[in-house]
């Protein structure tokens, strides 16, 4: 047997690539750590029940995020209610039912394009359709519907990918024992695609929770001294409150913004934990 050529050099290259990957991963982790550290140092001293349970105020020591937190929870819940069923079912139609052809292809391309449109454009759309045309005013409902439009493409694309990854042999097996299309989708395709769909839903909801521009566009308020009690009430949201605080001159408000960021991250984490919990139950 001849000696393999350049073996030492090839191994060296393999190692170099591995180290490069580690470095890139580390960069992402370090940046996140710095962000969390900075927010923590500034924000944690302000983080107490008084902060969670107070409305905004022009006195930093009295200011809190009660209305913003409640607004975000309202907004996220309503958005999830609209966007998840519509997005997942649209993906099921496009992957499982729609005949392949020019029309389906056009729809798919356009959905991909929609995912890349700046969020402010969705804000303008929401303002025209929901706030004005349907006269929903500056309600949390109008906000949630606008957010739903914004994240629908993300949910549809991720769900489509997840459905496409389900092997066709599984579908054939189910059809071969006399299942209808719906029974195949319900019993085999959706459960198999669930982890991927949930990953997409997490990404989409994370995006919705952090979006500010479309909410400002549709007229979400920055100073709200009440908690929305129904979908037609006016509201504010965490990122708007954070943005508002950072734009004030006083140092204390910047620290309050950091505390707000920590709360936002907390909500995001809880949301992801729920999704991971559902995913693990589904795959067991």
């Amino acid at each position: 047997m001849s000696k393999p050529r350049n073996l030492v050099w090839r191994h060296r290259k393999a190692k170099a690539f591995e180290y490069f990957c580690i470095a890139v991963t580390a960069l992402a982790v370090v940046l996140l750590a710095i962000l969390v550290y900075q927010a923590s140092v500034l924000g944690i001293p302000w983080l107490d029940m008084q902060f969670i349970d107070s409305f905004p105020s022009r006195f930093p020591e009295k200011a809190g995020i009660k209305s913003a937190l409640a607004g975000t929870l309202w907004l996220i819940s309503l958005t999830a209610m609209f966007a998840i069923p519509v997005g997942v079912l649209a993906a099921v139609y496009l992957e499982e039912y729609a005949p392949p052809g020019r029309l389906t292809q056009t729809i798919n391309i356009n959905i991909a394009n929609l995912a890349g449109i700046p969020s402010i454009v969705y804000g303008i759309l929401g303002l025209a359709i929901f706030v004005r045309f349907f006269a929903l005013e500056r309600s949390v409902l109008a906000g949630a519907l606008t957010m739903s439009l914004l994240i629908l493409p993300v949910i549809i694309i991720a769900s489509k990918e997840a459905l496409r990854a389900v092997p066709s042999s599984l579908r054939q097996a189910a059809f071969a024992v006399g299942a209808t299309r719906w029974q195949v989708v319900r019993a085999h395709v959706l459960p198999a695609a669930l982890p991927g769909i949930l990953t997409g839903v997490i990404l989409a909801m994370s995006r919705a929770i952090g979006e500010t521009a479309p909410l400002i566009m549709i007229g979400a308020l920055t100073y709200v001294a009440f908690v929305p009690e129904g979908p037609m009430d006016e509201f504010t949201a965490l990122p708007i409150q954070i943005f508002n605080w950072t734009s004030r001159p006083q140092e204390e408000f910047h620290e309050l913004a950091s505390a707000g960021i920590i709360v936002l991250l907390g909500v995001l984490l809880m949301l992801n934990a729920v999704a991971v919990f559902i995913r693990n139950r589904g795959t067991r």
Binding site: Q172, A173, A174, A176, V177, H188, A192
Partner: peptide, 24 residues
Amino acid sequence: GMVFQRPNPFPKSIYRNIAWGPTI
């Protein structure tokens, strides 16, 4: 009925694999 080229059991229990078709 049909049996395919590659074994394609449902990712479920042995019992459910057999029982699913008759059930639906």
